[in-house]
Nucleic acid binder design. Structure first.
Lengths: 165, 165
DNA sequence: ATGATTTGAATTGTGCACAATTTAAATTGT
DNA sequence: ACAATTTAAATTGTGCACAATTCAAATCAT
């Protein structure tokens, strides 16, 4: 067993289908889906952020990029992609839009011409203050206990890790 | 208190910011976000389904629609939208694509000409058998215990309900 | 009955996601 | 040194999401 990933659970139907549960669940029934509520909740979150972020002219994803840049000041596309589980196909146009709004600067690295360095601008830094109330307002809408929120986060991170890539 | 929705928790920062926690968390720090892992996990799920669904020429969302139609045989756009938390702007083109593939039929209701009835075709019904292994294969990739899966689902449904609409 | 309102879908336009491909620069192997 | 490979971004094309608008049919109000 040369793998650090040990658990190997089986939920609705087992991995090797020798089945025979007393509680037979129809895994092809819409209401028995686990991931669709996840999918819908993720959409609901971006919908809930939208009116809060409209005021500072950011989408939810752009807001997440800005959050990384408030912290790191400068990152390249690969680093952003690793943090956000996104590739250049998604990030390049998004970063161009942030550049057009004046919140980031996109220039080539001088050490490695392939690398595109994304750095925050003065206007981008100011956004951090304008966005101060956003987390609290969203937490209010979401109305989850800290325990529920942490558990949700933990489970999502586990799933994300298990699904790999 | 004329509201059935009672809890009103406050997580990262309280709704009315009179703050002062011993454990001060910076809600503007990327790593402290609760919803971004949710967002990333949802993307990872559709990514994980993709190779499984390619064989039957369905996207994840199309697969969810087919699941509803395997059960109900016929639904209108509004009913689909209520189940899936999506509107006609998303569903109409998706249903046209399913129609083009021959998995559903789209016709007007004769009782109410505004209503578009979506009914499953023979080919659409056959998909249910071809897709039999999909839930098990995904469960295997996800590798969550039944308890974890149920808890994740429950938390997502709570969040979805709290965020409303 | 008919004008006003409401309702169910469709349309339009913007912004993700992401597979697949392309481009150019850096690195590796001999 | 330089051909082959690898790597970082960008590009292309398809399919969601969703706000906003439009359109037509049904319902309501007088």
């Amino acid at each position: 067993m040369p793998n650090s990933k040990s658990p190997n659970h089986q939920s609705a139907q087992p991995c090797s289908p020798q089945a025979q549960q007393s509680q037979v669940v129809d895994a092809q029934l819409f209401d028995n889906q686990v991931c669709f509520p996840l999918y819908s909740a993720a959409n609901a979150v971006t919908r809930a952020y939208r009116p809060l972020l409209d005021a500072i002219d950011l989408t939810y994803l752009q807001y997440m990029v800005m959050m990384l840049l408030w912290q790191h000041k400068q990152m390249n596309v690969k680093e952003l992609g690793e943090q956000m589980y996104l590739d250049s196909g998604t990030l390049t146009p998004l970063l161009k839009r942030l550049e057009a709004k004046g919140f980031v600067e996109r220039r080539r690295s001088e050490l490695d011409e392939r690398v595109r360095l994304i750095s925050i601008t003065e206007a981008g830094l100011e956004l951090k203050f304008k966005a101060q109330s956003v987390p609290g307002e969203l937490a209010c809408k979401a109305d989850m206990s800290p325990e529920q929120a942490m558990e949700l986060k933990r489970l999502c991170q586990t799933l994300l890790a298990n699904l790999g890539s």
